[in-house]
Structures are given as structure tokens and as C-alpha cells.
Design a binder for these strands. Structure first.
Lengths: 141, 141
DNA sequence: TTGCGTGCAAAGGTTTTGCATGGCA
DNA sequence: TGCCATGCAAAACCTTTGCACGCAA
């Protein structure tokens, strides 16, 4: 669905490989680059960004922006550990942790928004912000 | 609820004034700065960022990050046109437009996440990303 | 008067871009 | 071979920070 301009290069496989091995973990472009260099790759950071952009466009990789000034996070989209049709993400604004929430209740929302409001939600990009359980216990403030 | 360290300065009023006048529109810190300069203000961009940060912490202003590398967007939170207990926000990733969706169905989700998953959603910060109706019609791709 | 807020400028970090070279098809 | 992808470096961009001064309380 977007393979018109795609060469199968070593670097492409390397970037995708890191995401696959991350197993649903959300990592930044910088981390992708660092891990590849640790593995002996000589890939350039610009190439990492360019490949990530392509992979996101192809739908193989998801991109999350947690905040302004913060680095964007990427995760492998075809990861079974995170079904993006029934999995939403919650970010705690206190501790910054990211939680995966798998619940049909949430998937229902997407359908509701589409049918009632004409808005096609992209679950992979949508993030709920709030306070997680442990943080709300800690701070009675 | 966070007024312990707050001076009432001219710049604070100016920044807040721009957001109020924007009437629900989401604008970047840069735009806030530009509008103030056009009004004859001599406010510095650093002050705009510092005030926006404070206003967000106080809950008077909301911050959205539309994408990595993109500038963060701000909007006035106390806007009456938007009941934040039953109103969620949808941003179209194609045209960048922000839609207000008022629906009890969505408010229910917040309750569900809190009771079942222990996550207290902050509706004012949470944004749904996806494709709006007009954009999905345009691009059949 | 005290201490926060401000302004200017510089730094910080992430992401993008230009150009010549190398590799896939 | 043709064209895309790569690598390096520099640029662009948004945002934060340091420091001295001004202003609110």
C-alpha cells in the first residue's frame, strides 16, 4: 500500500529489526541509532529518521509524540503483544510512564466516533493523559 | 490550587488574553508571541514559554503536541464553548484541525478507565488523533 | 525590601536538508 | 545502467536556561 518507492536495503532491515526486537517497547529514534551502533552498524542518524518516516507511512511502525521538545517514540506496529485495534495507551503526567491498556471498551470508542461523529480514530497515535494508579495513591494532594 | 507562587504581571495578563481571545482555537507559543508583538507588546519569547508553562500547570490552559518537531499548541481551558467533563478533542492528522466532540459516551470511558484500570484520565489533556470526515472523503487513497 | 518575573542571548536537543557517493533492481 | 538510499555535516526548528535588572507584594 505504499511500496512503490521502496528498496530493500541493509539499513532498512536493521532499523526494522531493532523495532521488532523491542517487543512493543517504545523507543526514540536516538535509541534506535544507539542500539544499531552497539551492534556494530555504521548507520547514520539521518538514515534512521528517514527510514522511520517511511516505515510509519507504510504502517509498519507507529509514532507517538509524548510532548513538545520531547523526542518522538516509535514502536513496531505488527507486534502481537500490542494489538493496536484493542490497545490504547495511557501516559501518566506525573511519572511519565506509559501504560498499555487492552480493553474492548476502548475499542468501542473508535467505532462510536466513526459512526456518530465521522471521525476515524487512529488508536496508535491516540494517547490518554492522566494520573496512573500508583501516582494517585502517592500524592493525596 | 497552585497560586502559591503567582505574581500578577502585565505579561501574564497579555499571554492569557491572547488565549482567551482565540476562542478555543489552538495556537503555538510562537503565534502567541507574534500576536502580542503585533499588539505593541515587547514581551520576550522566553517569557511566553514560561507563562504558558505556568498556565498549563494551573489548569487554565491546555497543551497539545501534534507531532515530533512540530510546535506545541495551546488553547484556553476555561472556554465556555467547551465543557471539559463531557468534551473530548479530536485532531485531524491530515488537515491539523481540532474538533470538539461532546458526548457522554466519551465521558463514560474516563469512568471506566478509572474504575477498571486505575487510571484517572485528564480529559483536558487527552486528544484523539485520526482523520476527520472531510479529509477521509477527500483522500480515497 | 524581598524575591519572583522579565528580557536578552546563548545553549540544548530533536529533526530535517544538501550534496556527493554507494548500492539495489 | 538508472535511480533511490546513504552518510556526513550543517542547518533549521522549538524550547530551555543563565544572568542581571525591574517590578509586584
Amino acid at each position: 500500500m505504499k511500496n512503490s518507492t521502496g528498496y530493500k536495503t541493509k539499513q532498512r532491515s536493521e532499523v526494522l529489526g531493532v523495532l521488532e526486537k523491542s517487543n512493543g517497547e517504545h523507543i526514540t529514534a536516538k535509541q534506535v541509532h544507539e542500539r544499531l551502533e552497539k551492534e556494530g552498524s555504521t548507520i547514520g542518524s539521518a538514515t534512521v529518521y528517514r527510514q522511520l518516516e517511511k516505515l510509519v507511512e507504510e504502517g509498519l511502525v507507529r509514532r507517538y509524540s509524548l510532548g513538545p521538545g520531547e523526542a518522538a517514540c516509535y514502536s513496531y506496529a505488527a507486534d502481537e503483544s500490542c494489538d493496536h485495534d484493542h490497545c490504547f495507551h495511557c501516559v501518566c503526567t506525573k511519572c511519565g510512564k506509559l501504560y498499555h491498556v487492552e480493553c474492548d471498551h476502548l475499542a468501542e470508542i473508535a467505532g462510536h466516533l466513526a459512526s456518530e461523529h465521522g471521525f476515524t480514530v487512529d488508536p496508535s497515535r491516540t494517547v490518554f493523559y492522566g494520573i496512573c494508579e500508583s501516582c494517585s495513591k502517592k500524592s493525596g494532594e
